[in-house]
């Protein structure tokens, strides 16, 4: 049973036709070719498929696309204004690169989106709040220290930018 489902993806209205119980992850990757959304455990554990839906992070691997209708969805590609230019990157993306908070890169899209939701809420997060915010995203390379430092540095950068 296919159904037409439309939602806002990175600021643009998109329309897909698929079974509403197909996962949002598969729909984004297979139907809409948004392969920046990573497919990891596919059971809601690792956070690599994280997207922001109406301001909240969710695991797209256990999200039925039928529930995406009318929603506003942001992937990592939606953070940068001009993806081809380094200048177009979101401060979080730039600072992750500067701090070497990326090794294999597989967790990075989800990690940055989790951090973004935190920094949208507060630009003065405590260390505990940073750890909590990215606790749903597993990284098997970095040991988290550099990721933690990058989020902290981004909070300072965004705070100063706001002044």
């Amino acid at each position: 049973m296919e159904k037409s489902i439309s939602f806002i993806l990175n600021g643009k209205k998109v329309l897909v036709s698929c079974n509403p119980l197909k996962t949002l992850l598969k729909t984004l990757r297979e139907d809409l070719h948004h392969i920046e959304v990573k497919s990891g455990c596919e059971q809601g554990e690792c956070g690599s498929c994280t997207v922001i839906i109406d301001g909240k992070i969710v695991n797209s691997c256990i999200f039925p696309v039928g529930q995406a209708a009318g929603k506003n969805i942001i992937t990592i590609a939606g953070l940068c204004k001009k993806p081809t230019l380094k200048g177009g990157l979101h401060p979080l993306q730039k600072i992750f690169i500067e701090e070497g908070a990326v090794q294999c890169g597989f967790c990075t899209p989800g990690m940055i989106l989790a951090a973004k939701v935190l920094l949208d809420r507060t630009l003065t997060p405590t260390d505990e709040e940073i750890r909590e915010a990215i606790s749903g995203n597993l990284c098997r390379c970095t040991g988290y220290s550099k990721i933690f430092n990058a989020v902290k540095k981004a909070s300072v950068f965004l705070r100063n930018e706001k002044k």
Binding site: G44, G47, T50, K56, I57, V58, N59, I62, F63, A114, V117, E132, A133, S135, G136, N137
Partner: peptide, 9 residues
Amino acid sequence: LGTPQIANR
């Protein structure tokens, strides 16, 4: 209960 992603859902 679970990760932030799970608790949101």
